[in-house]
């Protein structure tokens, strides 16, 4: 039994949960979504360095709520009747049409921007959960084959970055041995960079000698598909943004373009013949995780009652039962995902 879930499964689960959270402004549901993501992270995170991301993203989310509230207080927006307090209003020149600086701050407006900020914060919490749970190095291995070279470059980058710290220490140590104890950043730059570049040449030689870079000829079909797909995407987007034509036409052309481009990626990926050492596989826990993330998103799409509580007149919003139950289903990975082996190193 592997001790980790496929990283893509974590991402799909988190993005689906985030989609569910983005469909509502009900504060109870949003708090519930944050709590669900937090519980799963607490239950299934490893002790790798990225496992602390959830808290960082949660703090970002709180900052986003604060940002929304300050922006609302300073600049106005949603109007209401219950005036909490008034800020002195600064008159702006005529060309700043519609921008208001200062003025009355209403309870309705504060509540509206609080809900909106909480929605952003819940979404950030879901992204933080994905960052904390999914192993980025394993995720790079599941990149489409057409991106093989680029993902190898990123893998090299991920491996080399920590070595740079060691390189800096080595240079300082050599300096100290020569009696130069001043730690100046300027004098470290060139040796460390030269060291890193030399290492890259050695790495390239090693990759060449092990047969890296052997691949089939580029495919004309892939290029044609990619170009046609991109062209379709551009036209479709134009149609979608313009909105003068039939509403569905732009979306259809856009989806068609993306389909062609994806087909181009798949065809282009065939030229890279490679095998993976100990590949991550999709088993039952992966399917359960993805399904449990999709449940709240689907429930919220089907039962939209109570998802967007009114803020005028002011009232405490009710907790809609079905969407809340759907969100609780997303707790499932906290139980079915394989527990990471902690502290056994």
């Amino acid at each position: 039994m592997p001790d980790r879930l496929h990283p893509a499964a974590w991402w799909v689960w988190a993005l689906a949960l985030g989609t569910a959270a983005s469909r509502t402004t009900n504060p109870w549901l949003l708090l519930l979504a944050v709590a669900v993501a937090g519980y799963v992270v607490a239950a299934r995170r490893s002790d790798e360095p990225w496992a602390g991301s959830y808290l960082v993203f949660l703090k970002f989310g709180l900052a986003a709520v604060g940002f929304r509230l300050v922006m609302h207080a300073l600049l106005g927006g949603v109007e209401g009747e219950t005036v909490l307090f008034s800020l002195p209003e600064v008159p702006l020149p005529g060309w700043a049409k519609g921008i208001r600086l200062g003025g009355p701050v209403t309870a309705e407006g504060v509540v509206a921007s609080l809900y909106d900020g909480m929605r952003l914060a819940a979404l950030l919490a879901c992204l933080g959960a994905a960052n904390a749970l999914a192993n980025p190095k394993r995720l790079l291995r599941s990149m489409p084959a057409a991106l093989y070279e680029v993902s190898v470059a990123v893998t090299v980058g991920l491996t080399v970055a920590p070595q740079l710290v060691a390189s800096v220490k080595r240079v300082w140590r050599a300096r100290e041995l020569r009696g130069d104890t001043k730690r100046r950043a300027r004098t470290v730059l060139v040796p460390v960079l030269t060291d890193a570049l030399d290492r890259s040449l050695a790495l390239a030689a090693a990759m060449d000698s092990r047969g890296y870079g052997r691949r089939g000829p580029g495919s004309k079909l892939a290029g044609g598909l990619v170009l046609a797909g991109l062209l379709g995407a551009c036209f479709g987007l134009y149609g979608l943004l313009d909105g003068t034509g039939p509403a569905a036409a732009g979306a259809v052309v856009l989806v068609l373009g993306f389909g062609l481009a994806t087909a181009g990626l798949v065809v282009g990926g065939r030229r890279v013949g490679r095998t993976t050492y100990r590949p991550d596989r999709w088993r039952a826990p992966e399917f359960l995780t993805v399904a449990s993330g999709l449940v709240p998103a689907v429930v919220m799409a089907v039962f939209p009652d109570g998802l967007s509580p009114a803020f005028a007149p002011l009232a405490l919003p009710a907790l809609p039962v079905l969407p809340a139950a759907g969100l609780l289903v997303a707790l499932l990975p906290g139980f079915v995902a394989p527990a990471p082996s902690r502290g056994t190193k």
């Binding site: 190898v152 470059a153 893998t155 090299v156 980058g157 740079l164 040449l201 790495l203």
Partner: peptide, 13 residues
């Protein structure tokens, strides 16, 4: 391979 290695190292920097 040279471009990939150089990309990796410069991205790391």
């Amino acid at each position: 391979a040279k471009a990939v290695a150089m990309l990796g190292v410069l991205s790391a920097c």
